[in-house]
Design a binder for these strands. Structure first.
Lengths: 216, 216
DNA sequence: GTCTATAGCCAGATAGAC
DNA sequence: GTCTATCTGGCTATAGAC
């Protein structure tokens, strides 16, 4: 009886240990893959960062490719809700722009390498796009399109296609983080002054867009 | 006498051959590095594409790192004039925006991987930034700043900092190409319809910016 | 200058003990 | 589940003949 109970406890503990290891690996892999990319990442570095050894990585994720895909899917599942917020909620276009712009910066502060990682790896491997699109919850423009068309018809905003507006919103928000080193060099800023620029943009960008499209 | 003359011809021919080989290597390296990145690129693939063998790559460029840097510098020296055009010529802000926007797309058609390559590799290796900034001809914002401030004071454009305006112009123009696979997935377009979107943007983008900043 | 052959290293993956 | 030790292949780089 005591033995049975002990076995149960041991199993439990192993289960917890497993979960921890698997998560620690994913966490370490996230850091390394997102900063070095698939090609630049080293399994050894991931193992070190997770506090285990290489063999464990293969035990849990079979190979580098699969570990990478786990990280990638996980990353995209964090970005998608950000995009769905602007596409699918019920506020006006103007409110959506304001909300997205101010939300996006806090998202990037939490996950600084994430947008660049996704963009870079989608460029490297076109097939990922297809896999992503199969998912439910993949951002869909339909509702946003209808809304833009309606607001244009009602004269609330100037004529513009939903696609172009959406691209503009993404570009103005995402680009300064993706191209940070380039933009820092061109604007001759350091980390501190660049951060100031980015904070200004939380208001600047939504004003910039709204000025452009709003009928007065 | 005849021998001397023959030697001269042979030397000439070898010189031409050298130049060709060196250029062919750089050309092949450009293609491979710009699509695969430093880490993903393989010397073998570059050699194959150049129609020579690996040993020649080392003969001309010593090692992968130096070959890569040659490609990178070359790439940036193509991008810099595009940026200097908007920063340093003498037309009005409005004209500059129109010109840059319509020029940039033909630049990208000629060099589709180039902007992404520069952004990506600057992210990977921060030191390149310092090296680039040492160059004469590195884009400088001073003149553009004065111009923006003047036009703001004169009430031609709405109050905006030169840095923010410059970032916006870059973002709206460069982002859709850098993030092409992502944006294609989100807007549910294929290569053909995406190209249409990009062609529309030649006018759309400059209108979008000018609407936003111009006083009426 | 150009080639073939190979050195030397390093990374991903596996075997097998515990 | 976790470890050490090792295999295997691939890649950069060089040696050396022509």
């Amino acid at each position: 009886m005591l033995t049975k109970w002990l076995n149960y406890i041991v199993e439990k503990m192993e289960k917890v240990k497993d979960d921890n290891t698997e998560e620690q690996i994913l966490d370490a892999a996230k850091t390394v893959f997102q900063s070095k990319g698939m090609d630049g990442a080293r399994m050894q570095e991931i193992a070190d960062k997770a506090g285990i050894n290489k063999a464990m990585l293969h035990y849990y994720y079979r190979n580098k490719q699969l570990l990478f895909e786990a990280v990638f899917k996980n990353a995209f599942s964090l970005l998608a809700p950000q995009l769905n917020a602007i596409l699918n909620d019920d506020s006006s276009i103007e409110e959506k722009i304001k909300n997205f712009t101010s939300n996006y910066i806090s998202f990037v502060i939490k996950h600084p390498y994430l947008p660049n990682f996704i963009i870079q790896e989608l460029n490297r491997n076109q097939d990922f796009v297809l896999k992503l699109k199969e998912n439910k919850g993949f951002p869909n423009l339909d509702k946003f399109k209808k809304q833009v068309d309606t607001e244009v018809e009602n004269g609330i905003i100037k004529p513009i296609s939903a696609e172009q507006l959406f691209i503009n919103i993404l570009a103005l928000n995402i680009f300064p983080f993706v191209a940070k080193p380039l933009v820092m060099a061109l604007t001759n800023t350091n980390d501190k002054t660049y951060k100031n620029l980015m904070e200004e943009r939380q208001i600047e960008v939504s004003n910039f867009i709204i000025h452009s499209i709003k009928n007065t």
